[in-house]
């Protein structure tokens, strides 16, 4: 994967949070994912097919998603279904937005949402995964990009 590819995802993520909430997330130092799991309470996964293959996922705490959903819906009454739904939507929007850069042959799947701290999220073994730590309003989350 090229450096510019990774930047597309970072920009798309930063843009999402800024556009929706008015607050930019702070991008931490990215690193290569090793054997250790990078999973928080809720994870939204998107499969990528077409000319590029792989997957991306974003993982976040329930607290962060609660705050985010609260801002989007303008209410404090946010339940678990909304939170689950939101993490899928975030993953979908981030990967959908990068199509502008990658082109129409960058195909994205519908989101798959994993609730609870899974052991780890499986990504293809033969493709390197990059972890981008994000801090939005003091909440930590991670974007993982695994692209051929």
């Amino acid at each position: 994967m090229k450096e510019t590819d990774l930047h597309f995802f970072i920009d798309s993520t930063v843009n999402y949070f800024e556009e929706i909430t008015g607050y930019k997330p702070i991008t931490g130092i990215p690193y290569l994912k090793g054997a250790e799991p990078v999973v928080l309470e809720y994870t939204g996964i998107i499969g990528i097919s077409g000319k590029r293959k792989g997957s991306i996922y974003i993982t976040a705490s329930g607290e962060m998603l609660q705050t985010l959903a609260g801002i989007i819906l303008g209410t404090k009454e946010v339940g678990s279904p909304e939170i689950k739904d939101l993490i899928g939507e975030v993953a979908n929007t981030i990967s959908g937005n990068v199509r502008q850069a990658f082109g129409t042959d960058f195909m994205i799947s519908v989101p798959v949402v994993v609730e609870g701290k899974a052991k780890d999220i499986k990504t293809p073994d033969d493709i390197q995964s990059f972890v981008i730590p994000l801090t939005w309003q003091d909440h930590k989350s991670f974007l993982i990009v695994c692209l051929e």
């Binding site: 450096e3 130092i29 990215p30 290569l32 390197q128 990059f130």
Partner: peptide, 18 residues
Amino acid sequence: VSGSDFVPIVVRLGDIRM
């Protein structure tokens, strides 16, 4: 220096790992 400045470093690290 910001977090995203490290992107080329991580990509290069990936190359060295491979």
